[in-house]
Each structure stands twice: as structure tokens, then as C-alpha cells.
Amino acid sequence: MARPSVEQVWEWLDAVPDPEIPVISLVDLGIIRDVAWDDDTLVVTVTPTYSGCPATSIINLDIDTALRGHGIEKLTLKRQISPAWTTDWLSEKGREKLKGFGIAPPIDGTAADGVLAGRVSRLAHGTNLTIECPRCGSTNTERLSQFGSTPCKASYRCKDCLEPFDYFKCI
């Protein structure tokens, strides 16, 4: 078969859902770092979200299955850990879909930096990120836990509609 274009492959990958949050694609998630042909072998470079994310091996399997389904015979999946994955790479389309799915999208630039001074003053003043409830839009929300149902999420609660929700935390 003729070698499909790199653009075509990106399009195919954009139809592969994230196994944990199936409303967004692997491309939306920002974990596909490169698609290239090396002679007659297609090389797809993937970066893990969190180093221990159990979805990583499923993701590789899903990519493999999808591309072979499109007739790709020689395929190499390359793991790349640097530059490290960041939620800044989530696509606009993906952020909208997350919200529609009930997960508040990340607020860029708010990743934990482990800086002590910031932490102590945050404790002292009790300040917190303002996260909008994906259901009712209220900003009267509170954090229940920085660590949620998967490594990439934090648990929040809306104090107006009283529903708990996930926040896709910035990293």
C-alpha cells in the first residue's frame, strides 16, 4: 500500500480515545509527540502522562491496534520522557470536551512547584485556586483532595450545586 501522509496518521490518532477519559483523544491529551516515517517504518513518539500511569501500556496497545487497522504494517512506538508531559499540551478542543464530560480543565501555570515559601503562605492565608464547577459554572467550589481518582486529577466539590467533581490538575 502507498505510504499514508503524516497528516493522515495524526488524523487517525486523533480518533483514538484516551482509555481513562474516552471523550478526549490521545492527540488532545498531548502525549503524541511526533509522527514520522523512517524509510518504510512509521515511528510514533509517545510520552507518558505520569510515570506510574497504569493506562500507559493500554495506550500503546490502542495506538498499535488503530494504526494496524488502517493498514500500517511496520510500526515502532518510541517512548520519550523529556521534555516531560505537561497539561499545557492539552488541546483547546480537548479542554472543551473535558468540561462537557464533567471534569474541570487545568488552569495553565498553576502546577505545584514545591516551593516552600509559596506553600507556607498559602497555608497561612488559606488561599486556593478558583475552579469553576463544570456542571453549574459556580466558582464557589472547594478542594477535597489534591489527589483524585487518577493521578492526573484532583477532587473538588461545588458548594452551590453540591456535586463533587474532578479537576484535571495542572502539571
Binding site: S51, S82, T86, D113, G114, L116, Q146, P151
Partner: peptide
């Protein structure tokens, strides 16, 4: 080693904030 450290330090930043808290 630099690449592993870059990856791990983002996660550890969340750990240390939580454990300190």
C-alpha cells in the same frame, strides 16, 4: 538521568506540598 529527574520532579512537587500540608 536528567530526563528521569525532570519527569519525577513534577510529581514530587505535588508529593512534598501534600506531605508538608
Amino acid at each position: 538521568i536528567a530526563a528521569i529527574a525532570e519527569k519525577a520532579s513534577k510529581e514530587v512537587a505535588y508529593h512534598v506540598e501534600r506531605s508538608a500540608d
